[in-house]
Amino acid sequence: MIKKFLAVLISTALLSGAAFAATLNGAGATFPYPIYVKWNSIYSNKTGVQVNYQGIGSGGGIRQFSSGVVDFGGSDAPLTEAQIDAAGGDVLHIPTVMGAVVVSYNLQGVSGLKLDSDVLAGIFLGKIKNWNDPAVAALNPGENFPDKAILVAHRSDGSGTTSIFTDYLAKVSLKWASQVGAGTAVSWPAGVGGKGNAGVAGQIKVNDGAIGYVELSYAMTNNLSVAALKNKAGRYIVPTLDSTSAAADGAMASSKIKKMISSGDFRLNLNNAPGVDSYPIVGMTWILVHKNQKDAEKGRALVDYLKWILSDGQQYVSELLYAPLPSSVRSKVLNAVNGIKI
């Protein structure tokens, strides 16, 4: 009975492919999920094209994209060359929005924590174990630090947030780069792991003396206390949407990034960007599409959708606490989208 049932279902499944051409399926990163939901809802009301994006994780999204289960992927980390080959070699990275990763903490009696890259790396390496460590006090004159053990909270699930955060630490700390490295999941030298932003934020909330990292939007909506970080220009910057955008503008000024953009490569690294107002830990998220679309109808729908999110779509970005793409990048990305072969 079950076999018969399955056989009927599978045959209807095979027959129905054509009828659903106006539906686009996408899967991947969870970080941009809220804004993609917003875009898809507005876009489907406007055009009747149903776009379904699910946050199953960047790695999962990349695998579904390469095996052709979804029409587009979503990722917080750019694809490696091996991954691009596995996906057929013709992958276009389309940046959509940007976000910051913030250092959040819970310490009774301390409200305006300031950290520089050395101390931050020291804490996450497990070298600085107590809040009354002189290295912490030296950066925060006037604050009174208790004799309290530091509890490091990090993400236990692989995530783009971890990738951006560890990439920053590897950039600014040689010790971090050699002992730990950067990636979506790393071998943490200290602390406890929480699943997802909620897991990490939960650890921070219930443990006095805890410190961890979460997405900027998560910290803002949940009123977490955040540390100001010392940027490349030597100023302590509090994470906000403005300081995130400032970091993007700062990064765009570098000749290396300018060159990448003009060659149509949008896998930009925005960590530790120059500029007096730049917040140092910033990353972008990408939609992955094939440069050569096999199905003409789906391909056209996809290109129209991408054009819309890069133009009209950007106005909804900041109300959901993401930083929009700088307009200089947007026009270049639109050119690349127009180059998709249908």
Binding site: G60, I62, D157, G158, S159, G183
Partner: peptide, 9 residues
């Protein structure tokens, strides 16, 4: 498995 399966690169 649950933590890393989705993001394993």
């Amino acid at each position: 498995i649950a933590n890393e399966f989705a993001e394993a690169t």
